[in-house]
């Protein structure tokens, strides 16, 4: 049969996480369909239809789906259960919320945070903050997966495939949307950025994050990240948190400034291609995973790095 990928989008733009989920889905079954659920999201569907490897896009257009609430969305996907062998979503906060609900409706044990597809029924996933990699075989006849986006490259674009409407049956209104507050940022998105500049407790304050770290991030065209300690201390908002229970990133270059390197933080960044650590404590565990370590006061080192970069 086929595999259905749930598109991640904001109503206007298809998220890059979808293209990564498609790459994983193809390994489960080459007949990949993408479901775009929302209200007036034709542009998103058109974009999804151009992803290489996608055979067809299903579009469910209904006001009840506009806010991506889990209850109607899970009902929609589970209602397509007969038609698919596998259901795949990126392990974003929306994928993580809706897919277990789908799995329970289909009486399937979900496999979370897949980092490799070994066979259509066999998957690798990290447990214990990535300290152990588990390979599991699913005995369920249908599979429900969320995939770790940093482990799969995005499917490229090609010529457009057909888009078909799909019927949506409204259910009871269990939840309603009240508000959304999105952090405005001109910086690249954390999980897909090529370079991430991350700060920890060593930054000392929200002001220092902005005054010391942000200029380096901007000079590098990098995303800004943070350790849980920095988030807990209120320096930055939680959506910048890199770690076991925050964002998982694997950029080409990860620069950790004033981050000691707790295992929960390492879980979120240790697959980065090159890791740089700047910390004044030479014993900080972050140095054990860093390709380049600089034992220095970050308040001196970070501006120096910026100054040493070519202008522009």
């Amino acid at each position: 049969m086929s595999v259905l990928v749930l598109a991640e989008h904001n109503g206007l733009v298809l998220d890059d996480a979808t293209a990564r989920a498609v790459t994983a889905a193809i390994l489960v079954d080459p007949d990949v369909h993408v479901l775009v659920a929302g209200r007036d999201c034709g542009a998103v569907a058109a974009r999804a239809a151009m992803l290489a490897g996608v055979a067809k896009v299903l579009i469910a257009d209904d006001g009840d789906l506009a806010d991506q609430l889990c209850e109607p969305l899970a009902g929609l996907i589970a209602g397509l259960g007969e038609r698919y062998d596998a259901f795949v979503a990126p392990a974003t906060t929306s994928g993580k919320s809706v897919m277990p609900r789908v799995a329970a409706l289909l009486d399937v044990m979900q496999i979370s945070d897949v980092i490799a597809v070994e066979a259509p029924d066999r998957f690798r996933r990290p447990i214990y903050a990535g300290n152990i990699i588990q390979t599991v075989r699913s005995r369920d006849s249908k599979k429900v997966l969320t995939i770790r986006t940093s482990a799969f490259s995005p499917a490229p674009s090609e010529h457009a495939k057909p888009i078909e409407p799909v019927n949506f049956q409204r259910g009871p209104h269990l939840s309603s949307f009240v508000a959304k507050v999105m952090a405005r940022s001109d910086r690249p998105e954390l999980t897909s950025a090529r370079i991430v500049v991350s700060g920890g407790r060593g930054l000392g304050s929200a002001e220092n994050f902005e005054a010391v770290l942000a200029p380096l991030a901007d000079a590098l065209g990098a995303a800004l990240g943070a350790s849980r300690a920095a988030v807990d201390a209120g320096f930055v908002s939680n959506d910048l948190q890199v770690g076991q229970t925050g964002k998982i990133v694997a950029p080409d270059l990860y620069i950790a400034c004033g981050i000691s390197g707790a295992i929960q933080h390492l879980a979120g960044m240790k697959d980065s291609k090159v890791i740089v650590a700047i910390n004044k404590d030479p014993e900080a565990p972050i140095f054990q995973v860093a390709d380049y370590g600089l034992v220095a006061d970050l308040f001196e080192a970070v501006p120096e790095i910026r100054a040493a970069m070519p202008a522009g």
Binding site: V108, M109, I111, R122, P126, G130, N131, I132, I133, Q134, T135, V136, R137, S138, R139, D140, L253, K270, V274, I275, V276, F287, Q288, V289, A290, D291, Y292, G293, L294, V295, A296, A301, E304, I305, A307, A308, M309
Partner: peptide, 30 residues
């Protein structure tokens, strides 16, 4: 148990790299 545990492994650890002496050296090496 719907999932059979086929295998458990500890991931290949990253090896600690080198310490650089200055910010300038760091940028040059990067």
């Amino acid at each position: 148990q719907r999932l059979e545990i086929v295998r458990l492994e500890e991931p290949a650890g990253r090896l600690a790299g080198i310490k650089v002496g200055s910010a300038t050296e760091l940028v040059e090496r990067l």
